[in-house]
Design a binder for these strands. Sequence first.
DNA 1: CAGCTTTATCGAACCGGTTCGATTAATCAT
DNA 2: ATGATTAATCGAACCGGTTCGATAAAGCTG
Lengths: 335, 335
Amino acid sequence: MATIRDVAKLADVSVSTVSLALSNPARVSQKTLEKIRHAVAAVGYVADPLAQSLARGRSRMVGFVVGNVGNPFFGDIRRELENYALDHGHFVLVTDSSGKTERERAMVEHLIGLKAAGLALAPSGYDQDYVDFIGGLNVPVVCFDQKVAGIERDFVGSDNHLAGAMLTEHLLQLGHRRIAFIAGPSHMHTATERYRGFVDTMANAGVEVNPNFVVDGQFTRTAGYEAAMRLLVQLERPTAILGANNAVALSALQAMQELGFRCPEDISLAMIDNVQWSSVITPRITMVVQDTLALGGIIARRLMHRITSPQAAIEPPQDFVLTPKFVPGNSCRRI
Amino acid sequence: MATIRDVAKLADVSVSTVSLALSNPARVSQKTLEKIRHAVAAVGYVADPLAQSLARGRSRMVGFVVGNVGNPFFGDIRRELENYALDHGHFVLVTDSSGKTERERAMVEHLIGLKAAGLALAPSGYDQDYVDFIGGLNVPVVCFDQKVAGIERDFVGSDNHLAGAMLTEHLLQLGHRRIAFIAGPSHMHTATERYRGFVDTMANAGVEVNPNFVVDGQFTRTAGYEAAMRLLVQLERPTAILGANNAVALSALQAMQELGFRCPEDISLAMIDNVQWSSVITPRITMVVQDTLALGGIIARRLMHRITSPQAAIEPPQDFVLTPKFVPGNSCRRI
DNA sequence: CAGCTTTATCGAACCGGTTCGATTAATCAT
DNA sequence: ATGATTAATCGAACCGGTTCGATAAAGCTG
């Protein structure tokens, strides 16, 4: 590998001039710039990113930290970020915390150790310790998906209250009254907001929520399955189930299939968030989806702005909340 | 941030002794080791990974390069690698090439620039240029999924010929003769092997393959959909469709649904490779799946072995080919 | 106790860049 | 022509570690 000293020697200038020429060509005379350019080409010089990062104290890498890179929701966002970052000379390092706060912290620390220029982070924690940790990071951070109280950072997400409300409203319109809700973890902002959307809409319509019809699915497959089972074995069953995310809703569908309930003839189903291959799942599930591409675009632009613009550091953090979209399927019937 | 010089000053020893003590405690006297340990704790010293990598010429990071990190197949492998690498003091950098050779190359070069200790790579290219590029990398590389002719590296994958053969055999057993095959890209080893598995099994059974029943689905959703449509609009339709991967098979299911064909009553369907939520897709598709956890485990161990074991460099590359598993569903009927 | 080996520690060079103050050369106003 | 600016270049220090040869002290042998 050719180093900057090889270039300097060949171009017959000092190392510092080469460095200057490469980072700020305008401040070097035409003649030397030419010489240096030739020398660079001749020896095939490429700057060592590690050495640059060490000297600068900053790298040209941005971290992408989520709980599950396999989730298409995060996948779309990642792609947007990667494209945008690449166009701006930055490289995205993807990390997966498996939803574990512990691990997320280790990965964030590792990224900071790598002198990451910035972080796009879907928070997995919520307590004071966590808030302090994220708040104390000395690099630009854009949070997304989960809004965590106390974290003073840019945030990009969807209106989850509205998402819950839209589907509840839809089911009410179809005549459903016995609507069940499979909720997510109560410490997650998205989960509580979606639940509030459900409860508020029911209240506004003057429909009482049966406490037995609210179960906790933890946003996971296994817990969602068990929660759905608890709903389905009751004597007085719901006529419709609203899943707070894709995992619990699809688990509910599976439970229904296993118990011999037809959807939507016996029980209607609706869910928040899309899933890959939803178009081949029978029935097509009525859902509210987030505009992942738009979210990804905003996250990317906001993060790169904070990274590249010098005065961005003093701009106050900002929230970007997008409106989710209703996507009708045929999993909800009129009763 | 505390540096190694802070530690040295506080412990009243030289910088080199601190470095030595930290990397090889046995070669330092008990007394100084104690002093250094105290000093480290006192100033909260953590070595800068960047500086270490620069000085050593090697980092403690391994690169994971695939075409689609969202694919659960790669997700399982990634998780295995991450766990194993973490246990061995290494950190996994995940990158996604979107299947583009161009981009993959850029990412690999970036990882090399970062002095990655090794690479787990699902190759996306196949021509001589690509082979030379991968072969010329000066770090341990374990290839997986796609076996590329000419690349002299460890390889971990499944027996794709067998995968194709198993499903073909299954369909033949059920009485099918007019079996269609939605193939993948002909430059991909997995695709050609699966196709050969199909063709060979048909030939062994003395059943002729209708040329109109072999269409190219490119392993993608859109191409798979179009390919399936071409199959379904023929006057003489197949009685069964074998999708060479999950994307083309599910696209075929979608096409069938849209045209009003029932599965399996009208047409049977089988596919290679699992997909998330396959359990809630109706019908449950009969498939052959790869043992992703085992694959991931082998990849992880092989790569870390090459990285950590000094004499591993001279070990010849080795192929690990696992047997896939047949998972019956109810998408294939007897005729 | 002399002579030799081993052990513990250190200094200096190095990895490959960046940055800033100093120096020299060129340009300008008067 | 002269002093003041400005532009171009350079040297040296620095980022934060590792590594290796040198040196001094300690341990062993006979």
